[in-house]
Design a protein around this nucleic acid. Structure first.
Lengths: 256, 256
DNA sequence: CGGAACGTTCTGCTCTCGGGAACGATCAGG
DNA sequence: CCTGATCGTTCCCGAGAGCAGAACGTTCCG
């Protein structure tokens, strides 16, 4: 009945997690707002809110629900767990500082892209909205950069799982075309996304390889598309190349 | 059959969230480990892992599941949402520095206590385990400190909801005794927990009042019980008093 | 004072989800 | 190279959980 009809995911958990997401997006929401947003029955949403609150995932203030701070502790732990976290925390600000652009380090989790550490020079309200999301691999520079080091079967697995939805009119929506793009990334040595994920947003990314020889993430720089020109692209790529080398060296040192 | 038999919470979501918690506690876990840990059927756990992974709450690496970094973004947002966050980030390190002890700022959410910002001077592995949890109000200095400003009905509501489980042999387990303790806190001006939440852990907390006149959290200091003596307690309380005043002033300034 | 809006509670029907077993793949040891 | 153990995956069925809808209680308007 509802759009979701995959069947291979638990519906109840599905709804719960979606409620959390809606609460985040609405920056706090009441029962009535959430029933309107989700299209579910009042009593249903009510039960989910109750359960989520009990576990500290949501926090009720008056009749408004907000995301619970408990999630911070879980998430902080998740972030620190990554081998590259400490290095990213040191290197990403350097990169942002040198290029005077937004910079981040991203990793792939379950076929999606998520930022492990970022420095946003722009307004933090706008970026916080973007940051809470998981990004698609096919539309981001970081996704292309990381997947360029994966085998074709692994790439196809990810594409099959998540598809290649069009997010702007520039998004690559064909799997074969995407694979050719990855080939180009390998030859060029860096990946770009020119308004493919978000209209007007231009990003460049380079894969970072861990001491074990496998790619562990991607360092990226982000700018508005109107700031693009050949010279700048070259300058940014040089900075990224240098930082990627630094990153990998420090990762190796840390492993000792 | 299982200990949980309240009935007023969604079982499926319940299990899902508990799986996330187990994964955290085990610092990454496989399907087999989680079935053993939860006592559920393999296929059941499998379904939950699948669903949680799809939403980025968990991340599968080989056959091991870890907490997903997406939670960091949700949690970071939850933390920054609090009016007191920015001030806490500034004041708590000062307090830790001056007292040379562990310090934090905590808030109450859904009748539980959670840390909004903390500086741990001890090993971060041990504290990270503690930090991911929600604390009970009745056994912590921060809980007493915050609840000392609440009305009796509100306090009783919270106690009814969560009970007063004995966490050490010093934990207050009687509601009336707890209310008398709150009375003592109000007279004394600060709250303590002497090994009531964790054996050997001594904490002192003072409530912080926001510009609107209601309590918005508690600043606390934490030390081992063997470090306790009259003089030190007096010194710590003085430091806390001063910092609480600073905290409230900055909160008011920020509100302008 | 009356009605609208919202959260809460209750009940019954349906379909989800949990259990169990069978399957497949991987690995270690004889 | 075969065999048994271990672990993840898939399938199927029945029980009961969870969703919907309506009724109730409260608050806040005009």
């Amino acid at each position: 009945m509802k759009p979701r009809r995959t069947g291979d995911t638990l519906q109840t958990t599905d709804i719960s997690l979606r409620v959390v997401e809606h609460v985040t997006e609405l920056d706090g929401a009441t029962l009535a707002e959430l029933t309107a947003e989700t299209g579910l029955a009042k009593s249903t949403v009510h039960n989910h809110l109750k359960t989520l609150s009990r576990y500290g995932y949501l926090n009720r203030e008056g009749d408004t629900y907000h995301v619970g701070v408990k999630l911070y502790h879980l998430g902080n732990y998740a972030r620190k767990r990554h081998e590259a976290y400490e290095v990213a925390r040191a290197v990403v600000p350097e990169l942002a500082d040198e290029t005077q652009l937004e910079a981040d380090f991203t990793v792939e989790e379950n076929g999606r892209i998520v930022s492990l550490y970022d420095v946003s020079t722009f307004s933090n309200t706008a970026s916080s909205l973007v940051d809470s999301r998981l990004f698609h691999v096919h539309s981001t520079a970081s996704g292309k950069s990381i997947l360029s080091e994966y085998s074709e079967v692994r790439v196809r697995e990810i594409l099959d799982r998540w598809g290649l939805p069009a997010q702007t009119e520039h998004t690559i929506t064909d799997a074969d075309e995407f694979l050719r793009e990855l080939e180009a990334v390998r030859e060029r040595g860096y990946a770009t996304s020119f308004g493919e994920a978000i209209e007007g947003m231009w990003t460049i990314g380079i894969p970072v390889t861990g001491p074990d020889g496998t790619v562990c993430g991607s360092i990226n720089v982000c700018a508005p598309t109107y700031a693009h020109d050949e010279a700048r692209e070259r300058a940014v790529v040089d900075a990224l190349d240098e930082k990627a080398a630094v990153f990998e060296r420090r990762l190796a040192e840390q492993g000792e």
